[in-house]
Design a protein around this nucleic acid. Sequence first.
DNA 1: ATGTTATATGTCAATATTTATATATATAAA
DNA 2: TTTATATATATAAATATTGACATATAACAT
Lengths: 182, 182
Amino acid sequence: MNSLAYALLSMLVRKPCSGYELKQLLEVFWQAKHSQIYPLLQKLEQDGLLTYELVGQSGKPDKKIYTLTDKGLSILKEWIAQSPAVPVIRDEFLVKVYAIWLTDIATAKKLFDERMRAINEKIAYREEELRKMRDTFGDSIEDIACTHFGRYILYQRRLRQEREEIEWCKWVMNLLEKSAFS
Amino acid sequence: MNSLAYALLSMLVRKPCSGYELKQLLEVFWQAKHSQIYPLLQKLEQDGLLTYELVGQSGKPDKKIYTLTDKGLSILKEWIAQSPAVPVIRDEFLVKVYAIWLTDIATAKKLFDERMRAINEKIAYREEELRKMRDTFGDSIEDIACTHFGRYILYQRRLRQEREEIEWCKWVMNLLEKSAFS
DNA sequence: ATGTTATATGTCAATATTTATATATATAAA
DNA sequence: TTTATATATATAAATATTGACATATAACAT
C-alpha cells in the first residue's frame, strides 16, 4: 500500500468514481498519470479494498465505477491516524529561480510572467470550485463531519498558497525592475 | 539530463560543493536521497559537466568537491530559459486532510498540531538563513546579478508559504473547535 | 563500554512514476 | 476531410526514486 493507493481510497470514500475521474480529482494533492492509476485500482480491487461495476454510456466509452469496501474503509481509517510522511516538492521553476542570477532580466521576467499566468488560472478554478461547494452545502461545509469538509479546507489551502505565490512573484518582479535601473 | 541533474548544476554554479553538502542544500526545492545524488554526480563528471577534487579532512572522512565546468555552465544556461515542467507536490498530510471528516476531532487536532510544529521549525530555520544572508551581503542580495539572489528569493518564498500554511492551520483549528461545540 | 548522531561516499534491489503505444467513440474545429 | 480534444481503459518499457546494506572516523551521550 503506497501513498497513491491511500489517496485513491480517500477519494472513493466520498463517492464511487471511475479511474478517469479519480485522475482529475487527484490533481489537488497527488498528481499521477493514468498508467499508474488504472493498474493500482485493479490491484486494490483484487485485494478486496474496492469493488467495481461496469457502466455503459451512450456516446462515451464504458467505464468502471469503483466503490470502497468495508475493508478499504477500515484500512483507510487506520492510516489517517498515523503521522504523515514528509512532503515532497519537485518544482523545476524553483530550480530555475535558484539559478536566475545567471540570466538577463528579460529572461527572468518571462519566467515569472508565465508562472503568474499559470497560477492565476488555478486561482480562478479554485474560486469557482469553492463557490460551487458553498452554494451546494452552505455552512455545513465548515463542519468536520461533512463529507466535503476535507475537500473544502484543502481547496482553501491551495487558494491561499496560490494567492501568496502571486504576491511573492510581484515582489520579485519589483526587485527585477529595480535591478534594471541600477 | 533530468531535473535533479539541473538542480545539482544550479547549486554548483554558485560554489563548489560535496555531494553531502548538495543533499542538504537541495532540500529547499528538490528533495533527494544520497543514493540518487552520488551516482548522478559521477555521471555528470563523466559527461564533462563537472570536475572533482579529493579533499582530505582531519577528524572527518575525505570528500569530493565538485566544480562546474564551462560545458556544465552553458548547458545550465540553456535550460533555464526554457519553460519549466509542471510542479509535482506529493504530500501525505494533504491526503489525510482530504479524508479528515472520517476521523474524530482529537485525531484531526493532533494531525494539525504536528504539522504546525514541523512548519514552525522550518520557519525558524528560514528566518535564520535569511538573517545570515542579509548580514553577509546587505542590500546587494536584492540585485539579480548577486550570486545569492536566487537563493534569497527562494528562501523568501518558502518562508511566505510556510507562514501562510500556519495561518491556514489556525483557521482549520478554529473550525474544529466550532465543530466540537455543535 | 555501548549506542547515537554527524560527517562522508558508495552500490544494489525494490518500488514508484513517466513515457510511449494501443484501442474505441463522439464532438468540434480547421 | 482530416485533425484535435474529451471521454474511457490498458499495458510495456524506460526512467526516477527510495530503502537497505556497506564502510569509516569522531564526538557525544548513556
